[in-house]
């Protein structure tokens, strides 16, 4: 990919089922004068659901944007399946340009890839199917601008799903999203993961996805400071009947793990304003 200038980018089609489908090695990214990522290693294997956690400015979004080729890496290597098998959901864009467009049209643009610049035959059915997966089949002909923020986010998820990806990369899919959309999102993801989808998702908090996430990677100041099981306390709090993850509630979990990254498991995890250098 031309997006990577100094860093190397490869398209991986591993034959070994245990080989990572997404892999970053020593990825260093500089935006202007600031070093946003400082040598990040990340590997996601087939069928995993990996949550990428960290404070604002820790480099989560930069990492996924580098993985999908939007940002160039200064050094390091990135490997990903061919782009037509990767679905990417960026952080919500504002309601589009100067010409309004319908949900169907936006989702249809997800059908395009390097070797296909025109929608394939039967695209309407596939678009309808993807919108159905996110529970918006009846809004296909509504203008994007008329949908709520959560619904717009679901349209962007449908745009990634319409590609029938093996790997889904999502950048804060539930940030500032209304409750019904969050629940719908969790249902959609559960069904997809059961179907064998590999997921890398940037989150502020595990929330509705707690049951689904198999591993958590935590970034702080552009470095991976934790890579392992998702923080348990957050899981407890997103259990049934619990409305929200509470920042100060997890007294029982912080000191538990005695590993170098242990402090990360402190309850401030994922609450952006409280994580400080």
């Amino acid at each position: 990919m031309s997006a990577l200038t100094a860093g190397r980018r490869t398209v991986a089609e591993p034959t070994d089922p245990d080989a990572p489908v997404i892999e970053a090695r020593g990825v260093h990214v500089r935006l202007g004068a600031s070093h946003v990522l400082r040598g990040v290693d990340l590997a996601v294997r087939r069928g995993e659901v990996v949550a990428l956690l960290g404070a604002n400015g820790s480099g989560k979004s930069t990492l996924v944007r580098t993985l999908v080729g939007v940002l160039p890496a200064e050094s390091g290597t990135v490997s990903l399946p061919p782009l037509e098998r990767v679905g990417y959901v960026p952080q919500r864009v504002s309601a589009g340009g100067g010409v309004p467009s319908t949900a169907e049209e936006v989702v249809a643009s997800g059908l395009l890839h390097p070797r296909r610049l025109r929608p394939p035959r039967g695209w309407r059915a596939r678009v309808r199917e993807a919108l159905d997966q996110v529970g918006l089949a009846d809004r296909a002909h509504d203008a994007i601008g008329q949908l709520s923020g959560g619904q717009q986010q679901r349209v962007l998820i449908a745009r990634a799903l319409v590609r029938r990806p093996e790997v889904l990369v999502l950048d804060e899919p539930v940030a500032g999203v209304d409750r019904p959309s969050q629940e719908q999102f969790a249902r959609t993801m559960t069904a997809l993961v059961d179907g064998g989808l590999t997921v890398l998702v940037v989150l502020h908090e595990l929330g509705e996805l707690a049951q689904l996430v198999t591993r958590a990677v935590v970034l702080r100041h552009g470095r991976v400071v934790h890579d392992g099981p998702p923080p348990a306390a957050l899981g407890d709090h997103s259990a049934l009947g619990h409305d929200h993850v509470h920042p100060h509630a997890a007294d029982d979990m912080a000191p538990r793990r005695g590993e170098p990254g242990g402090t990360l498991l402190d309850p401030t995890l994922g609450i952006e304003t409280e994580v400080r250098p």
């Binding site: 990919m1 997006a3 944007r65 999908v68 080729g69 939007v70 061919p82 782009l83 037509e84 990767v86 990417y88 960026p90 864009v93 589009g96 340009g97 467009s101 049209e105 936006v106 249809a108 643009s109 997800g110 059908l111 395009l112 890839h113 390097p114 610049l117 025109r118 929608p119 962007l156 745009r159 590609r163 990369v169």
Partner: peptide, 22 residues
């Protein structure tokens, strides 16, 4: 003829890059 691709790029350039469009 290239309406879909030109729409995709004009609508959301970041997604178009990630989708591998030229």
């Amino acid at each position: 003829g290239l309406r879909s691709a030109l729409f995709a790029v004009s609508h959301d350039e970041e997604f178009a890059v990630a989708a591998g469009l030229p």
